[in-house]
C-alpha cells in the first residue's frame, strides 16, 4: 500500500495544482468586489488537498526507508478485469439507450453483465432481463403510477 499511497498522493497533488492554477481561474469568475469570492471555498479545498497529498507522499516515502516488506497491491487482477468488463457493459448499454431505446439499454445491461460475470445458461440470460424489466414496469407504471422515461 505504501507504493500505492505515494502514487495516489502524486496524482492527487497534480490534480490539485491543475485545478488550483488552471481550472478554477478558468471556470469561476472572481466575483464582484466587496463580496467573498466564489473561488474561495474550491480554492481552499484544493490547497488542503495539495498539502495533504504532500503529507501522504512524504510520510509513505519516509516509511519506505525502513526494511519492512511491502504489503500486497490494493488491486487484484480479477477486480481490475471486472472494472473493465463492467465499463464495457455500461458503454454498450448507453449506446443502446442513445441509438435504439431505453428498453434495449436495460436488456443490454442485464444480459451484458450476466455474460460478463460468467453466466452461460441460455434460459437465465433470456428470462432474467425479461423478468426484471417486467418487474420494474409493474412497480413504477402500475404500483407507483409514474413513468420512468
Amino acid at each position: 500500500m505504501r507504493h500505492a499511497n505515494v502514487v495516489s498522493g502524486v496524482v492527487l497533488a497534480v490534480v490539485g495544482l491543475v485545478m488550483l492554477f488552471a481550472v478554477i481561474p478558468w471556470q469561476i469568475d472572481p466575483g464582484p468586489e466587496g463580496m467573498v469570492s466564489p473561488r474561495l471555498m474550491p480554492s481552499m479545498m484544493m490547497v488542503l488537498i495539495v498539502a495533504l497529498s504532500a503529507v501522504l507522499i512524504f510520510s509513505n516515502l519516509r516509511r519506505a526507508d525502513t526494511d519492512a516488506p511491502e504489503p500486497a497491491m490494493p488491486f487484484t487482477w480479477s477486480e481490475l478485469a471486472a472494472l473493465v468488463k463492467m465499463g464495457a457493459v455500461f458503454a454498450v448499454s448507453l449506446a443502446l439507450y442513445l441509438f435504439v431505446s431505453p428498453l434495449a439499454a436495460g436488456a443490454g445491461l442485464v444480459i451484458g453483465s450476466l455474460v460478463a460475470l460468467g453466466e452461460r445458461r441460455l434460459a437465465v440470460i433470456v428470462l432474467m432481463p425479461a423478468v426484471l424489466l417486467l418487474a420494474i414496469w409493474l412497480l413504477f407504471y402500475k404500483v407507483l403510477g409514474t413513468a420512468i422515461v
Partner: peptide, 21 residues
C-alpha cells in the same frame, strides 16, 4: 475535502456565478 469541493459545483448562492459547470 473532495466531498466539499464537489459540493461547490453549480451556481454560487450569493452571486449566482457558475462554478465548475
Amino acid at each position: 475535502a473532495f466531498g466539499v469541493f464537489f459540493a461547490t459545483v453549480g451556481l454560487e448562492a450569493e452571486t449566482f456565478i457558475p462554478r465548475l459547470t
